[in-house]
């Protein structure tokens, strides 16, 4: 999927993920999000196929009944189809190795298979559903409003335009510059790993779409030219020394050298 995220192949951290999903599930159980219940649009066939896929690929950690194992993997009852689509659809699941956090990797399943898995997990308990195409259509959103929502709720970790940033102990907030709108939406809804949950009472579905519109507006690039990674003054300073002062000092050496 996205090249930046692929470079960040950390050895994934099962324990932290377990905690994340545990917190998520207890949350979902206590206050089942009213807006995003898993609708059983998926056919019964999908559920059956999903169960088979799950048994083959996920059950070794999460258990055949998806109720998880203490200290290994969280229960997936009630996480909803959105969580499955995000975790599997960005390649974060299945995990390969432990590390500070599970990074995005090449996706291992086709979208149909992911939908089947999601259908089965969604059938286990109510949880957030995969958003509709209209919900994630940035062209329907208000990018300026998205800017205000983004910088209040997201920019502190993901950077002012979603370039990513560091968290504690080797964890990081990934770059959003190449993340698909569906996955952005699902991440807000489900709060994967370190990320908090932004339920629909916190960031409304319209605001989520505005955030997507804001991030899509960044794809036009920076009006000023190449963006140097859009990570702020540090890269600007580095370029000022290496390129700007570097070029000028190179020319002083030419000025100071005797002509042959």
């Amino acid at each position: 999927m996205n090249t930046l995220a692929r470079k960040r192949h950390h050895k994934a951290a099962p324990l932290l993920l377990v905690l994340a999903l545990l917190a998520l599930i207890t949350g979902a159980a206590a206050f089942a999000a009213p807006s995003a219940t898993a609708t059983a649009e998926a056919s019964a066939d999908d559920v059956v196929a999903g169960e088979r896929l799950f048994a083959a690929n996920c059950a070794s950690c999460h258990g055949l009944d998806a109720e998880g194992q203490d200290g290994v993997a969280p229960s997936l009852v009630g996480v909803g189809a959105a969580a499955v689509d995000f975790q599997v659809g960005t390649g974060r699941m299945p995990m390969q190795a432990s590390g500070p956090q599970a990074p995005a990797k090449p996706v291992q399943f086709s979208q149909d298979e992911i939908n089947q898995l999601a259908a089965w997990v969604a059938s286990l308990g109510a949880g957030p559903a995969i958003p509709t195409a209209e919900q994630v259509d940035g062209s329907l959103g208000d990018a300026a409003n998205g800017m205000e929502v983004f910088r209040t709720n997201c920019a502190m970790c993901h950077g002012s335009i979603g370039g990513g940033g560091a968290l504690t102990q080797g964890k990081f907030a990934p770059s959003l510059l190449e993340t698909t709108p569906e996955h952005i939406y699902e991440a807000m809804l489900t709060g994967p790993q370190s990320m908090p949950v932004f339920n629909d009472a916190n960031v409304t579905p319209e605001q989520k779409r505005d955030v997507i519109a804001y991030l899509e507006a960044q794809q036009a690039g920076s009006p000023g030219g190449l963006s140097l990674g859009a990570i702020g003054p540090v890269s600007e300073g580095l370029w000022a020394w290496l390129i700007l002062l570097g070029l000028i000092i190179a020319s002083t050496i030419w000025v100071g050298a005797r002509s042959s």
């Binding site: 917190a23 709060g191 908090p196 009472a201």
Partner: peptide, 8 residues
């Protein structure tokens, strides 16, 4: 009730 577990 808006503030679900894990929310900020």
């Amino acid at each position: 009730s808006d503030v679900t577990m894990g929310s900020v």
